[in-house]
Simulated scan of single mutants.
Amino acid sequence: MNRQQLQQLVCERLEADLALLIRAAEASHQAATNEESKAENKYDTRGLEASYLAAGQSRRVEEIRQALAAWRNLPLREFDEELGIQLGTRVWLQTADGRRQCLLLGPDGAGLKLPADDGEIMLITPRAPLGQQLLGLGVGDEVSAGKERWEILRAQ
């Protein structure tokens, strides 16, 4: 899978998440403003809880919109060994005992998992300690995640 295909796949997943969350936020807003949500006594907090949920979902909608915009505007460049790993780079890591992991370093959307021909790709950002360590490194370098050390096998 090439860079453009990966970028398109990330955008499609974020768009699907956004559409789902917008529907949920609208439903929460309706529940919060519904006549039945009015408090019947001082201990009745249904309306308040529904408004908290609607506010949280609205914030999440905005976060996904920002992530989607960041991915749409991400310039895709070929891997440059002199610059090392940058945003948009796909990285293959391996531990000493042979466990492997494929990561995509992106501007936002951490935790998103993408299917790939050779397994699964986990999206991480430079805000994560591992993502921050990867910036500027190249094949053969090592990074640590918790107590584990990972060698960079490949970057593209």
Rank of each mutant, 00 (worst) to 15 (best):
R72Q: 13
L6V: 13
A110E: 15
A155L: 04
N34W: 12
P107T: 05
A39P: 00
L9P: 06
V61K: 00
Q86M: 09
V10Q: 08
A25D: 07
A16N: 14
A32L: 01
A50K: 01
A16Y: 14
G140Q: 09
P115W: 13
L153Q: 14
G138D: 11
S58P: 00
P115F: 10
A32V: 02
D141T: 03
A96W: 07
G140H: 07
L135P: 09
S28P: 01
T89P: 04
L105R: 02
A27C: 03
E78L: 04
L137I: 08
T125D: 11
Q5I: 09
T89H: 11
V139M: 11
L112F: 03
W92Q: 08
V143Q: 08
D17M: 11
A67T: 03
V139L: 09
D108Q: 14
A155S: 06
Q86C: 06
D108R: 11
A55Q: 14
L114C: 02
A110D: 14
S51G: 00
L21R: 05
Q8M: 10
A67S: 12
A69Q: 12
L135G: 07
L153K: 12
L18V: 08
R90Q: 09
G88T: 07
E12G: 12
C102Q: 13
T33K: 00
A39M: 02
K42Q: 09
Q57L: 14
L14P: 00
L68K: 00
E26I: 00
A155Q: 03
L68R: 01
P129Y: 15
R59G: 01
E26Y: 10
A54E: 13
Q66P: 06
A155F: 06
A27S: 06
A145D: 15
G140W: 12
G47K: 04
R77Q: 13
E15K: 07
Q66C: 05
L76N: 01
G56A: 10
A96G: 06
G88N: 04
G119T: 08
I121F: 12
L137A: 05
L87P: 05
Q66G: 01
A110Y: 13
I85H: 02
S37T: 09
L9R: 15
Q30A: 02
A31N: 10
G109Y: 03
G56W: 10
L14A: 01
R65P: 10
E78D: 13
P107W: 02
Q7Y: 12
V143Y: 15
K113S: 13
E63G: 00
L137T: 09
A128W: 14
I121S: 03
S37C: 03
I85F: 11
N41Y: 07
E26F: 10
V143W: 14
Q7C: 06
L105G: 02
L114T: 03
R23I: 02
Q66R: 07
I22M: 13
Q66M: 08
L135I: 13
A32K: 02
Q86E: 14
A96K: 06
R77C: 04
A128P: 00
L114P: 01
A50L: 00
N73L: 09
